[in-house]
Design a protein around this nucleic acid. Structure first.
Length: 910
DNA sequence: ATCCTCCCCTAC
DNA sequence: TAAGGTAGGGGAGGAT
């Protein structure tokens, strides 16, 4: 069914609307921008009958070589209501060019320079597309923001802004090499907007996030279900409960047929029955050769696994490496597969049509699909946006319909409501149902009855089993096993020794059609992550830190959205392999890489961005990877725990306030186990304290107003920088004494942080002792402003006795009753003139935890007491009180979704 | 034995 | 040009 490129001459008749619009010829044209057809097109270029008006108001001037060339563009403009200028005039609205050098060197005023594909794509889609997506180079200056050409509705004119950004960028850069020019129009991860833009265009991101959303949706629907099922009621009226067959267990697997294509074809009916693929690129060929492509291909051929080799074997220097997200069954007949590069696919099937992504459409159809199924039963296990398992046993028995009747009924309904075909498979368990679907596809249904299971499975190729992918398949092939039948009669122990204990066992069961896993209607998240392995090209260390920060924010938002906190953070990096070419075969791809990961586990959960960034950065620094070789970055949070429901107001508040603003950091690493060196650093720190005090007036005040917002859940023992008071260095606080007595030192398990500020609060002797015992290393972070501060110390594994102690006692006040705590607090308040930040934090943290642990009986009493006592002290103490209250309220909000009523005023302040 | 970390594999 | 994400299962091998 492949439509060959040369068949363009005897083009098939389009639908009537197309004929009337005069578009009959364009399908053929756009099948290729290849020379042969371009020539053919030229022959007919004489007649200029107007076919549409899409370029009304547009006047183009074509510079240099373009594809299609200027003569063709002239004709196209004439046919579609536009104007063609032989040279640039004041009324020229767009310049069409493909040569970047031209765009750079010419000063053409405020006319956008746009790729020719803007014209061709607009014609193909029969509407004027937003030219901004086709800009080759923007030469408008911020001083000339006015546009004298039509702007499409919805598209904000951000050209001026872009240019401004460009000029800012060039201020920073000393020279203006071609690479830098290119990077201006190329969004890499160095661009602050990259993350958003990438996610808006990533199919894999969409698949992953939609899958998670529908799993969550099913859970929610089940919780608030009223037990009424409209679809079921209708089915009941059609069924015949008296002459029913009773089923013992029927699982339905339902899967949309080539989902993305089906959704896309709803608006392109003329492409039905043709080989169609969904891709970002429009053409199988790219105009310029990518440097390094041949080198990467050669390297892959040498060492990559079979499937990678297969994927690149047909590529040449001009093939598009845009991936096919989904292709139609007609395309599959030519050997095209999902995930294949467009360049490769076009070689297999030159008539392949490409259609654009329709992310909104996917969401709508998926939503309708779920809604439809949910009108029959909520015994649904969501697999992804277009696939689910449904336990229909009860439904069938209740309604008195047989499997086939139900399948026909449901599939017709889905087709009617979504306009997209689906297939359904039925069996006694998930595995059987899934493999039944395989036979049902496309657009069909199949019930694998119990008696047929053994025979059916014996013929199934092993690669069809869920969980058997490339690697497993190749191992099995080496064992001489090809079908499930082969595995059925092979030895379990051999399978297990080759594949592993569990995998071997599961495989043996699967081969026989056995699946012990029940349907999972309630899904519990075990991890949250965000990773980007595309567009990572850092030019400075700072850029890489900034990206890590954006990613921290992203992953925090996701954690926050599901109302959880995490005890484990993993940083994943993809790094260019030692001998891999610097230029990747694929534009902004990751190329040949090594994958690395490191994780950190703490005994107190992470609940804020700041900590996420801090930990991620620490791990990143530990890898010590040259930032230029970085090709991928990911942050994963695991060991999740639920936090109580947070009100939406509070949630938004926390999100806003958790954004890290200190985004300009450079690093000056001083690794050392030498206490002597640390002494020197002490002096550095004193300097930094004085700077800080100058700029921030009152440290407690700062703590109260800003910092506590992002300090939720700071791990015990990870104290913040000591900002105050050089004097305190010589006299340790009684609270710290108490703390040290209970905790040993404020450290976490494994490689955790000690804040150097805390150490400098200690008497020198004690400090040296601690540092010796824990073999401290530390880094000095220098801020751009010139401020210096010591951030963290790295701790080697500690004596196990101490570790145990720490695990037993999270807070120094843990387990103390109010009666026991009260005198301690009293002593604290009378021991010093001013409160110490570290003490305030410890107490705040303790009360926050009390709130979270629902131990609130005493909190009101405590706050009354605190308020009464603090009233007699100075305003620094009052601020300390506010800080304690604020932190505790965060715990209240997290736990109960509301705050505790406490006194928030003192007569002397505010 | 059992746990943990760093992977690898798989699916959509 | 191109948008190579994300979650879960599980194995190897070291630490306890």
């Amino acid at each position: 069914m492949c439509e060959r490129i040369l068949e363009g001459r005897k083009r098939k008749t389009k639908n009537e609307e197309d004929e009337a619009m005069g578009f009959a010829d364009f399908g053929g044209y756009f099948e290729s921008k290849k020379a042969k057809l371009v020539d053919q097109f030229k022959e007919t270029a004489g007649n200029t009958n107007v076919k549409s008006n899409i370029f009304k108001g547009i006047a183009i001037f074509v510079n240099g070589l373009t594809n299609p060339n200027s003569a063709e563009l002239k004709k196209l403009m004439a046919e579609h209501g536009g104007v063609y200028h032989g040279y640039q005039m004041s009324s020229t609205t767009h310049i069409i060019a493909s040569n970047l050098a031209y765009a750079k060197t010419k000063n053409l005023g405020s006319v956008p320079i746009v790729k020719a594909s803007w014209i061709t794509d607009s014609i193909e889609l029969r509407k004027l597309l937003d030219y901004k997506r086709y800009i080759l180079f923007s030469n408008q200056s911020a001083a000339q923001p006015k546009l004298n050409f039509p702007i499409l509705p919805g598209g904000e004119n951000d050209i001026a802004k872009e240019t401004e950004k460009d000029s800012l960028g060039s201020v920073k850069t000393v020279s203006s090499s071609p690479e830098i020019e290119k990077s201006r129009i190329t969004k890499t991860a160095s661009d602050p907007k990259f993350l958003e833009e990438f996610y808006n265009n990533s199919r894999l991101h969409l698949i992953a996030t939609m899958g998670a959303e529908f799993k969550q949706l099913v859970g929610q629907l089940r919780e608030k279900s009223d037990g009424k099922f409209l679809g079921k009621e209708l089915l009941l009226s059609k069924g015949n409960p008296s002459s029913k067959r009773t089923y013992s267990s029927v699982v339905m697997h339902i899967d949309m047929d080539c989902f993305f294509v089906s959704v896309g074809l709803r608006n392109r009916p003329e492409l039905k029955g043709k080989p169609v693929a969904v891709t970002h690129a429009r053409n199988g060929q790219i105009s310029s050769v990518r440097p390094g492509r041949s080198a990467e291909i050669a390297m892959n051929l040498e060492r990559a696994p079979e499937n990678i080799v297969e994927k690149i074997s047909n590529l040449d220097s001009h093939s598009s490496m845009s991936e096919i997200a989904c292709c139609s069954y007609e395309a599959r007949k030519c050997g095209i597969k999902n995930g294949m590069f467009l360049g490769t696919a076009v070689k297999l099937c030159p008539g392949l049509k490409t259609i654009q992504y329709d992310f909104q459409g996917y969401k709508e159809v998926a939503s309708t699909l779920y809604k439809t199924v949910a009108s029959y039963t909520l015994d649904i296990e969501a697999v992804s946006c277009d696939e689910m398992y449904v336990d229909v046993t009860k439904l069938l028995n209740d309604c008195g319909v047989v499997v086939d009747q139900f399948a026909t009924h449901l599939r017709a309904e889905i087709m009617e409501k979504t306009g997209c075909p689906c297939s359904t498979g039925f069996g006694a368990n998930k595995l059987q149902a899934r493999l039944a679907t395989k036979k049902a596809k496309p657009n069909g249904q199949f019930y694998l009855e119990v008696d047929d299971v053994e025979t059916y499975f014996s013929e199934i190729p092993l690669g069809d089993l869920p969980g058997v992918g490339r690697a497993t398949l190749s191992k099995l092939k080496n064992l001489g096993l090809v079908t499930c039948g082969d595995v059925q009669v092979s030895s379990l122990s051999i399978l297990q020794s080759e594949l592993g204990q569990k995998v071997g066992e599961t495989l043996m069961e699967q081969a026989k059609g056995i699946d012990k896993k029940p349907l999972n209607f309630h899904h519990e998240r075990k991890s949250v992550s965000a990773e980007i392995n595309y567009g990572i090209r850092f030019k400075t260390l700072e850029e890489s830190y900034n990206f890590l920060q954006s990613l921290s924010q992203e992953v925090f938002n996701r954690l926050n959205d599901i109302g959880m906190k995490a005890k484990c953070l993993t940083l994943k990096l993809m790094v260019r392999s030692a001998d891999a070419p610097t230029e990747t075969a694929k534009f902004l791809g990751h190329g040949i890489c090594d994958s690395l990961s490191k994780s950190i586990t703490s005994n107190v959960a992470i609940t804020d961005v700041k900590t996420i960034f801090k930990e991620a950065k620490q791990l990143y620094d530990k890898f010590n990877v040259p930032f230029e070789d970085l090709r991928g970055v990911g942050i994963q949070l695991s060991k999740l725990e639920k936090i109580g429901p947070t009100s939406s107001v509070m949630s938004n508040f926390l999100k806003q306030n958790s954004v890290i603003n200190e985004n300009k950091v450079t690093v000056d690493v001083i690794p050392s186990n030498d206490v002597g060196v640390m002494k020197n650093k002490q002096e550095v720190k004193q300097e930094s304290v004085s700077v800080k005090n100058d700029s921030k007036k009152n440290s407690i005040n700062t703590l109260n107003k800003k910092e506590t917002k992002s300090k939720r859940g700071r791990p015990a023992g990870t104290k913040t920088k000591a900002k105050g008071n050089v004097k305190s260095k010589t006299s340790p606080s009684p609270m710290l004494d108490k703390y040290l007595k209970n905790m040993g030192t404020p450290v976490k398990t494994n490689f955790q942080n000690i804040d150097m500020g805390v150490l400098y609060e200690l008497p020198e002797e004690l400090r040296n002792e601690i540092m010796k015992e824990y073999q401290l290393q530390h880094q000095v972070i220098t801020k751009k402003s010139g401020e210096r501060e010591i951030q963290v110390a790295d701790v080697k594994p500690q004596p196990s006795e101490l570790k145990q102690k720490i695990e037993e006692k999270k807070s120094p006040f843990d387990g103390l009753s109010w009666e026991e705590l009260k005198p301690i607090l009293k002593t604290w308040m009378t021991s010093e003139a001013d409160p110490k930040e570290i003490d305030v934090e410890m107490i705040s943290e303790h009360f926050r935890q009390l709130a979270i642990d629902r131990k609130i009986e005493n909190l009101k009493v405590i706050f009354n007491f605190l308020h009464r006592t603090f009233e007699k002290l100075n305003c620094k103490w009052h601020n300390a009180y506010f800080s304690i209250v604020n932190t505790t309220q965060q715990g209240m909000v997290a736990r109960y979704g509301g705050t505790l009523m406490v006194e928030r005023r003192f007569s002397c302040c505010k």
